[in-house]
């Protein structure tokens, strides 16, 4: 088929030939089709802003974590528990994304840390640009650890680098064992996977061995933590993980709480 007008002549065809069919449009033979090579990432803009955020965090010595999960896995509860437990050790702040309401930000403020709410409206994930604006709101407050609580969604946030140092997937025993198999993209590059609500494991018949095997296959480089944000079970290992990655500030000794 002719690329130019959709007629049945093989393309490319020599010009100046007789046309035995009607054209409904002007037939300008100077208007050839041409290919424009672009080779550009569709995420280029986000990735550029994410690198700026990463530079900001590095320059300020901030450990930034991007917490992702399905809705209701307990991201906010995990952060609340961490804020309460480590408040005398680190200066912490939070950025929290939700489609609507600032309920989570209120909870996090009540747990003792500055919380910047990003209300995304119809957008199902945080992007580097939204985080950049939230950082402006955070101002010059000194921060050691910044928790970025993403919108509850296991699909879209996996595509958006926010400039974080660590990506943490939170999952819970009530979600069953096969979430990692259903959402491979978000688990694959996780630095840590936190399995929450282990106090409910028996009640919901959680098959622990299967779940851990699935997690290890789907998230090969992740550290695994089995916790209950509600009871505090398993949180010590999680806190140790944060201490391992948090900036050390020997010049600023803190009093023990």
């Amino acid at each position: 088929m002719c690329d130019h007008c959709g007629c049945s002549t093989p393309a490319p065809h020599a010009h100046g030939h007789a046309h035995d069919h009607d054209h409904s449009h002007a037939h300008d033979h100077d208007e050839e089709r041409k290919t424009i090579a672009l080779h550009q990432s569709l995420m280029a803009k986000n990735d550029r802003l994410a690198e700026q955020n990463r530079g900001f965090f590095k320059g300020r010595g901030i450990l930034a974590l991007n917490l992702v999960s399905s809705p209701g896995s307990g991201k906010t509860a995990l952060i609340e528990a961490t804020l309460r437990a480590l408040k005398d050790e680190f200066r912490m702040a939070t950025i929290v994304g939700d489609l609507a309401t600032d309920n989570d930000a209120r909870r996090l403020r009540a747990a003792g840390a500055p919380a910047i709410q990003i209300t995304t409206g119809a957008v199902c994930h945080l992007d580097a640009h939204m985080v950049q604006h939230a950082l402006e709101d955070l101002g010059d407050a000194p921060v050691d650890i910044l928790f970025i609580e993403n919108v509850g969604n296991l699909v879209c946030p996996s595509s958006f680098d926010l400039g974080e140092r660590l990506r943490v997937v939170v999952t819970s025993v009530t979600e069953g064992e096969d979430k990692p198999l259903k959402y491979p993209a978000i688990f694959q590059n996780a630095d840590a996977v936190v399995v929450n609500k282990i106090d409910l494991a028996d009640a919901v018949g959680f098959a622990r061995e299967t779940a851990l095997a699935n997690l290890k296959a789907a998230a090969p480089r992740a550290r695994l933590f089995e916790i209950s944000a509600r009871t505090g079970a398993g949180l010590d290992a999680w806190h140790a993980f944060l201490r391992e990655h948090a900036p050390r500030r020997p010049a600023q000794p803190r009093e023990a709480g």
Partner: peptide
């Protein structure tokens, strides 16, 4: 495996 690239376009 995480690519999302606009490779090329054809225009006329």
């Amino acid at each position: 495996g995480r690519e999302m690239d606009l490779v090329s376009i054809e225009v006329s």
